[in-house]
Each structure stands twice: as structure tokens, then as C-alpha cells.
Computed example of a mutant assay.
Amino acid sequence: MTQAFLEHANITVTDPQAFADLLCDLFDWRIRWQGDAKSDGYSIHVGGDASYIALYSRGGVTPTTNSYSTPGGLNHIGVVVPDIAAVEAHVRKAGFSPHSHGDYEPGVRFYFDGPDGVEIEVVSYP
């Protein structure tokens, strides 16, 4: 049997286009698809050939909660990059504040809080 892999995750956001533009800019991703979605919503699928993030909205602002204390909450998105220093500089230039830097087996990482409070982990493996 072939090992399964994660194709996508679907996240509700207030502005799918702005979030997609940021992810394309920071990670050199592309918009794979966009259009009308379930429950009168709109989605943009952004990522690469093998996987993507679906950014979904029905418009308006949704109250947020602490995902780390909410069962089923999204804690963070992890993105692997080849040059973590270059991406961190790009994240700062985009107006975000990297935090929680750390070396761990087998790589290095930092986090930043993106749009709608979605935490993004950036990681690089040697």
C-alpha cells in the first residue's frame, strides 16, 4: 500500500484574496483554483502541485478563540522552506513579527501570527 499524504487543509478567513496573496508572496506558491464554495462561500486554493491550503470565507468577521484550548481548533500551519533566513527577512518586510525561534532535531524554526491570527510555523531542515 502507498503511504497516504496530506493534500490540503481548509481554513475560514476574513479575506481569502489577501491571505492567498501573502502566502504566494512569502512562499512562492500559486493560486490553484478559486471560486464559489459551499454555504454561499468563496474559496481560494493556494499552494504547490502536491498540496494546498483552502482559504474559505462567507464574508464578514468571525469571532476568534484560542485554538490551543479549543478542541478541533487550528493551532498552526507548518511550511518547510529551503532558506529560513531569507524567508524570515521577507516575513519582517511584510510587517509581521517572527517569534519562538528554535533549533530542534532535525531542523530550525520560527513562528509568526498571520492574518486572522493564524499562526504560521516556518521550518527548514539541513
Rank of each mutant, 00 (worst) to 15 (best):
42 Y>R: 04
80 V>E: 10
125 Y>H: 12
94 A>H: 10
89 A>K: 07
63 P>C: 12
91 V>M: 06
36 D>C: 02
109 R>K: 11
113 D>N: 10
4 A>W: 05
62 T>S: 14
115 P>T: 06
2 T>D: 03
101 H>E: 13
80 V>H: 08
45 H>E: 02
17 Q>V: 15
67 S>I: 05
70 T>L: 04
29 W>F: 15
125 Y>Q: 09
34 Q>N: 07
40 D>P: 02
45 H>D: 03
54 A>G: 12
30 R>A: 15
25 D>E: 14
7 E>T: 15
64 T>M: 10
73 G>C: 05
113 D>L: 11
23 L>R: 02
120 I>A: 13
2 T>M: 07
57 S>L: 08
99 H>K: 11
87 V>E: 06
63 P>K: 11
5 F>G: 11
93 K>S: 11
99 H>M: 06
47 G>K: 07
89 A>D: 11
3 Q>D: 13
124 S>A: 15
65 T>G: 14
99 H>C: 02
71 P>L: 12
67 S>E: 05
91 V>C: 03
106 P>W: 04
76 H>T: 05
124 S>F: 02
40 D>N: 12
112 F>N: 03
61 V>W: 05
77 I>T: 07
84 I>P: 01
73 G>I: 03
31 I>N: 02
17 Q>R: 15
7 E>G: 08
74 L>Y: 12
3 Q>G: 14
90 H>Q: 14
86 A>Q: 15
74 L>T: 13
50 A>Q: 06
27 F>V: 05
35 G>L: 09
122 V>S: 04
112 F>H: 03
76 H>G: 06
3 Q>M: 13
72 G>M: 04
73 G>P: 01
54 A>E: 14
49 D>Q: 09
23 L>N: 05
95 G>T: 01
42 Y>M: 03
75 N>L: 04
45 H>G: 01
12 T>S: 09
14 T>H: 08
52 Y>K: 00
101 H>K: 12
107 G>D: 07
110 F>A: 07
15 D>I: 07
46 V>L: 00
109 R>I: 03
77 I>R: 05
64 T>H: 11
98 P>W: 06
1 M>W: 02
76 H>S: 05
27 F>K: 04
51 S>E: 14
29 W>M: 15
62 T>Y: 14
4 A>F: 11
5 F>K: 08
100 S>M: 07
21 D>G: 01
103 D>N: 15
43 S>G: 11
17 Q>M: 10
111 Y>E: 02
53 I>R: 00
73 G>N: 01
20 A>M: 09
125 Y>L: 05
17 Q>I: 15
26 L>G: 03
122 V>P: 01
33 W>N: 01
102 G>E: 14
94 A>K: 13
60 G>F: 08
28 D>N: 14
78 G>S: 13
120 I>W: 12
91 V>T: 04
38 K>Y: 08
8 H>C: 01
39 S>K: 10
5 F>M: 10
112 F>R: 03
18 A>K: 10
114 G>H: 08
